[in-house]
Design a protein around this nucleic acid. Structure first.
Lengths: 123, 123
DNA sequence: CAGTATCCAATTGGATACTG
DNA sequence: CAGTATCCAATTGGATACTG
C-alpha cells in the first residue's frame, strides 16, 4: 500500500475529514443510506426496514442526510400525509466506498473476534 | 450501482457490521491507523502526529486496536521505557477501504458544505 | 517515556406520550 | 402517516494530576 496517500486521511490534522465522517459513521446513517439504495421509500418503510431504529433516531438521521444533500425529501399534500425519501446523486456516490468498508468489516469479522477472544484470555 | 450488494451493509439488520464499524468509525481510530501507515511509531510520536488527541484517548484507541488485532504493541525492557506500535496485516488491509471513504468525503466537502448553507438559509 | 486515575461536561440515543 | 416533545440513561471525550 502506498502510504503517501494516507495524507488524505490525516490531511489538516483530520479536521475536515472527521467533520464529515462524524456525520456518516454514526450508528444509523450508513444503514439508512444502504436501505435507500433500493429506491424511493417512505418514512414507515424505512422504520420497518432498518430494524431497531427509533422514530426519533430515524427522523434525526434523515434530517442530517437531507441537510448534507445526500437524500431528497418530498412531501405530498395528501391526507394522510405521504413523505418520500430518495438518494441524491451525491448520496448514491457514497454507496461504493461504503460497500468497500462494509466488505472489509465483514471479511475480517472472524479475525477480529478471534483476536478479541485471545486478548481477553491473556488477561 | 448494483443495489443487490447493499445487502452487505444491511445484512443481519446491520448488527455485525455496526459492531465492527462502531470501533472503526469513532473520533480517532481511522486517524491513528492512517498515521501508523507510515510505519512503526512510539506513543509520543503518535501523540504529536495526531493533533488534538489526548493521552487518554490515544491510550484507549491503541488498546482497542490492539485488542481487535489491527496493531501490535511491543514493549522494550529499557529505562526510560520504549513502546512501539505497528499495523498488523489486518490493520494494513483497512487502509484501502479507509482511503476510499476518505476520498469520497474530501471529494464531497464542497457539495456538502453548499448543501448545509442552503439548508440553513431555507429556514 | 508511557502511561493510569479521577472527575466532569457534552453528546448520543432510547422510551414514551402526544399531534397536524 | 409522519412526525415532535420531553425526559432520562449510557457513552464518549477532555482536563488535570499523578506514577512505575
Amino acid at each position: 500500500m502506498d502510504y503517501e496517500h494516507t495524507c488524505m486521511i490525516r490531511g489538516d490534522g483530520g479536521r475536515t475529514l472527521r467533520a464529515i465522517l462524524d456525520q456518516i459513521c454514526n450508528k444509523w446513517t450508513l444503514l439508512v443510506v444502504a436501505t435507500l439504495d433500493q429506491g424511493t421509500l417512505r418514512f414507515t418503510d424505512l422504520h420497518q426496514q432498518v430494524p431497531g431504529i427509533s422514530q426519533r433516531m430515524l427522523t434525526l438521521t434523515l434530517r442530517n442526510l437531507e441537510r448534507d444533500g445526500l437524500i431528497s425529501r418530498t412531501v405530498y399534500a395528501e391526507v394522510p400525509p405521504r413523505v418520500e425519501y430518495t438518494l441524491t446523486p451525491t448520496g448514491k456516490s457514497l454507496i461504493p466506498p461504503a460497500l468497500a468498508l462494509a466488505g472489509w468489516a465483514i471479511e475480517h469479522v472472524p479475525d477480529i473476534e478471534a483476536s478479541r477472544k485471545a486478548y481477553e484470555e491473556r488477561r
